[in-house]
Each structure stands twice: as structure tokens, then as C-alpha cells.
Simulated assay, not measured.
Amino acid sequence: MACFLAPATEAIVVSAAAHHNRKVSKDNSSESKQQESVTFSSYLVQKLQWLSTLLWGGSFLLLIEHIWHGEIVPWFPFLTALNNPNDISPMLTEIATVGTAMALTVTFTWFIAVAVCYMALKKQSDKSIITD
């Protein structure tokens, strides 16, 4: 019905955070040098754009799927579940359960991918320090 709204909402928040991070890092880079060592938390913040892209892409595909099945229409109230008051409660339940589960799964997968990339980056930087 409208499960794509949960990942889309998270995508809005993450996109705003990524935009803010880019703006702050651009301001800081003009004032001082970048640190040589990168902490995991700063690496996570740097990779917020990955999460944003995953969430927007998934939300868009779910939107297309819901349009295909006639659950979203191009006229008000857009969501067909809002036409019948009896369908509103199941729609909200689907957003809260299925939508949130999808958003959390995407976020968890992104976290694991960033952690693996960070470990590979640290391993590569440790090897370069030893060989120098």
C-alpha cells in the first residue's frame, strides 16, 4: 500500500545529513588540513551518500511497483487506501512493519558494507606504512 514511505522518509533525513556533512567538510577543508588517520565514525559520515542512494533507489522502485499494481493513482488522495476509512489502519500498519523493516535492512546492509570497506582501507594503509 504505502510501505515505500518509511524508506523514503529515512532517505530525506539521510540526504539532509549528507548535504550538511558535505557543507561542513568543505568549510573545514579550507580552514585546515585533513587528518591522516580516519576514524570509523568519520568514515561512516563520509559514506552517508551511499545510504542515501540506496534508500532513494529502493523507494523509487517500490513507488513504481505500487503504481503498477494500482495502489497509487495520479489523482487525490493518491493512495487508494485513503479512499476507504477501513483501509487506513492496515496501510499504517504496513508502513510501520514492512516499511520500517525494509529501511532497517537497507541501513544494516549499508553499515556492514561500510565496515568492510573501512577494514580494507585500514589494512591497506597498515601495509603501506610497513613498506615505506
Rank of each mutant, 00 (worst) to 15 (best):
Q124M: 11
K33I: 11
A8N: 04
W50T: 09
L51V: 00
L92M: 13
E10A: 08
T105W: 08
V38D: 05
T53W: 08
L51F: 04
K127I: 11
G70N: 02
A6I: 02
L44A: 02
F111R: 01
Q35G: 13
S59H: 00
W75H: 15
M119G: 10
S128D: 11
I67T: 10
V98L: 12
L82N: 03
T109W: 06
K26L: 13
H66T: 07
A11Y: 02
I130L: 10
L44I: 03
I67D: 05
K122P: 06
A81S: 09
L5Y: 07
P77L: 05
S25G: 08
T105C: 11
S29K: 12
S29Y: 12
A17P: 03
M102A: 15
D87A: 12
H20S: 08
S52K: 15
I129L: 15
I130T: 10
T80L: 03
S29I: 06
I12Y: 14
D126V: 13
T39Y: 01
I12P: 06
V14D: 01
H19Y: 12
V116K: 06
E65F: 06
A113H: 03
E36D: 12
P90S: 03
F4K: 07
P85L: 03
W50L: 11
H69V: 13
L48I: 00
S89D: 08
T93F: 10
P85I: 02
A113L: 04
K33R: 15
V106P: 01
F76L: 08
C3V: 12
H66I: 08
V38E: 14
D27E: 15
D126C: 15
I95Q: 01
K23G: 02
S37T: 07
A8L: 11
M1P: 09
L48W: 00
D126F: 14
V13Y: 15
W110G: 01
L54Y: 07
A2T: 02
L55T: 00
C3Y: 14
S32D: 04
V106L: 04
E31I: 15
P90W: 04
E65H: 08
L51K: 00
D27N: 15
L104S: 07
C3E: 13
T53V: 08
D27I: 13
S41M: 07
M119I: 12
H20E: 14
T80H: 03
M1W: 07
D126S: 15
L5D: 06
P74H: 02
T39W: 04
L63F: 15
L79E: 09
I130V: 14
A18C: 05
V116M: 05
S52N: 13
A113Q: 06
T39Q: 02
E36G: 06
V14T: 00
I112S: 08
Q49P: 11
S42Y: 06
L104P: 01
R22Q: 11
W50Y: 12
S125H: 08
S59G: 03
T97K: 14
T105V: 11
L79Q: 12
V24Q: 10
V24I: 04
A113S: 11
L79C: 08
Y118S: 06
T100P: 01
K127S: 14
N83Y: 09
L82Q: 02
S52D: 11
V24W: 04
F108E: 04
A115T: 00
